[in-house]
């Protein structure tokens, strides 16, 4: 397929929609798992963010045909979920959040079996299983029963079975769950590689906002089953023009600094242990002027300056702002 950007050596033209939903709703009686969800997911890595119970897993299960929606429609890779569900399941891979590995089988045997269940022949299944297990980083462990695996190894095995049949799209539900920081970084790097190097579209969910900022091109934020925001990651992370200042000490020191800066004509407010300084008024707008002011004020007060950096947006802000901008 044509359509290659600098990053994606992929199967899909950059403008083709991978997942499209229209008014997707799933109610269990009085529990509203998803309400009127309308999103468009393109190729690359898309993050699906939300608290536990926000509807992330429900959305994935509906797209896979494991659950039926109460109303609304959706299509995955051009196939409608109501009529062409089987076609969809040929083309996608799924890495569930929960434990799903039988403990008495080795990763190697299991991934081969899953490859065959996806339609690969015996020999290609073995080859690809070996390949994919190497890609996810399971070496000799792959021959041991999965019951004895650590969480990290289990997550890798789950990922391997999702990739073994060369899908066009993978759903990764909380892939970093239960991993220690080093393993988490590994996994995130792997997810990024899947999206960029392997050329497979990825929908990855997490309730950890920071991770998804690093890894995804596009972020969809869900809250209580509703869409809160859906835009490119860069939109979220743009520099806001503010400055963040942090000094040694407690809130007392922070407040002293804040008042002193205010007296110099800078609008500022506390944020956590730091002081957020709004973009300066015209008098101080030359490059570096504000920084000099801050430096001088801190020195006058005898405080130790720890941090002086430009502020950029965070995903958290979306939750704090609330409302639905799409």
């Amino acid at each position: 397929m044509a359509g290659v950007t600098g990053e994606l050596t992929g199967l899909l033209p950059t403008n083709q929609s991978v997942i499209t939903t229209a008014g997707l709703t799933k109610h269990y009686g009085s529990v509203h798992a998803l309400t009127d969800l309308t999103v468009d997911v393109g190729p690359g890595v898309t993050g699906l963010v939300g608290a536990n119970g926000a509807g992330k897993s429900t959305l994935i299960k509906i797209l896979l045909g494991l659950l039926e929606p109460t109303s609304g429609s959706a299509s995955v890779l051009g196939h409608d979920i109501e009529h062409a569900s089987q076609e969809i399941r040929r083309l996608v891979g799924y890495m569930p959040e929960h434990d799903c590995l039988p403990p008495d089988v080795s990763a190697s045997d299991f991934v081969v079996h899953m490859a065959r269940m996806s339609g690969l022949g015996a020999a290609p299944a073995r080859e690809r299983a070996a390949d994919v297990l190497r890609h996810v980083g399971l070496d000799e462990e792959r021959y041991r029963p999965m019951g004895g695996y650590s969480t990290g190894m289990k997550q890798r095995a789950k990922l391997a079975q999702a990739l073994v049949h060369d899908p066009h799209l993978v759903f990764l539900d909380e892939p970093t769950n239960g991993l220690d920081p080093a393993a988490r970084t590994d996994m995130l790097r792997l997810v990024q590689r899947i999206g960029s190097d392997f050329g497979i579209a990825v929908l990855v969910t997490s309730h950890l906002l920071g991770e998804l900022e690093q890894v995804s091109n596009h972020v969809i934020v869900l809250d209580g089953g509703r869409l809160l925001r859906s835009s490119a990651t860069t939109d979220f992370l743009r520099r806001t023009g503010n400055l963040l200042v942090e000094v040694v000490g407690t809130e007392t020191e922070r407040d002293r600094l804040g008042e002193a800066l205010a007296q110099r004509g800078l609008t500022c407010r506390p944020r956590g242990s730091m002081v957020a300084v709004d973009p300066p008024p015209p008098e101080l707008a030359e490059a570096g002027a504000v920084h000099d002011v801050i430096r001088d004020v801190t020195a006058e007060l005898g405080l130790g300056l720890m941090r002086l950096e430009p502020d950029h947006g965070h995903l958290e802000d979306v939750f704090l702002e609330g409302g639905a901008h799409v």
């Binding site: 089987q86 339609g119 690969l120 022949g121 290609p124 996810v136 990290g152 590994d186």
Partner: peptide, 25 residues
């Protein structure tokens, strides 16, 4: 942890071979 699981960069290969139908699976 997991340092034995170093990810080797030997490139990812696509699978373009035949895929079985539901009956064969």
């Amino acid at each position: 942890s997991e340092r034995s699981g170093v990810i080797h960069d030997l490139g990812y290969r696509r699978y373009d071979g035949p895929r079985d139908g539901t009956a064969t699976i």
